Simulated scan of single mutants.
Amino acid sequence: MKLPNFDQLRTLAECEPEALESLRTELINAVIDQANGETKQRLRGLQFQIDAQRQLHKSPLGACIKISRMMTESFHQMIDRLNQPDTAKPAKNAKIYRLALMESEQ
């Protein structure tokens, strides 16, 4: 499905908000459906959290701020894991390889 241009989306938002919401849901589901098993489950869970925040907040701006905070927190968790790999729990069958610099790079 092709994403409408900005003017078409604005018109939908102003005149047919239900159609815009339907389009949003359809596009999100199309992306999630392309993912594989575990990733698909995680994406569905994440979308559930996003939808819950949108319903909890009285204003779209409030929901946007909360979702932005969720993204920032997730980003900081990723950075922490990258900077402290020894504290991360590897998957059951994960093979962990230590990378060392070559002598010429040290």
Rank of each mutant, 00 (worst) to 15 (best):
I79K: 11
I32Y: 00
A100N: 10
L61V: 03
L101E: 11
E18T: 09
I79L: 07
T25L: 12
A13G: 06
A94M: 07
S74M: 08
M102N: 13
R69I: 08
S104C: 01
S74A: 11
E14A: 10
A13C: 08
Q77V: 04
H57G: 01
T72S: 10
Q84P: 07
G62N: 03
Q77C: 07
L43S: 00
E14W: 11
L27R: 14
D51K: 04
C64N: 06
L99F: 11
K89D: 05
L82Y: 04
S22G: 04
S74Q: 07
M78E: 05
A91G: 13
R54Y: 00
L101M: 15
G45E: 06
G45P: 03
R42K: 14
I79T: 10
M70W: 01
I96A: 10
L99R: 12
N93R: 15
N83D: 06
A88T: 10
T87P: 06
R42E: 02
L61I: 03
L99Q: 09
R10F: 14
T72W: 06
E21C: 11
N5W: 06
Q84N: 15
F75T: 11
L46Y: 11
F75K: 13
A100H: 10
E26S: 12
D51L: 03
P85R: 01
L46V: 09
G62S: 03
E73F: 08
P90K: 06
I50S: 00
S22I: 09
T11V: 09
F75M: 08
Q53A: 03
A19L: 14
M71L: 13
M70D: 04
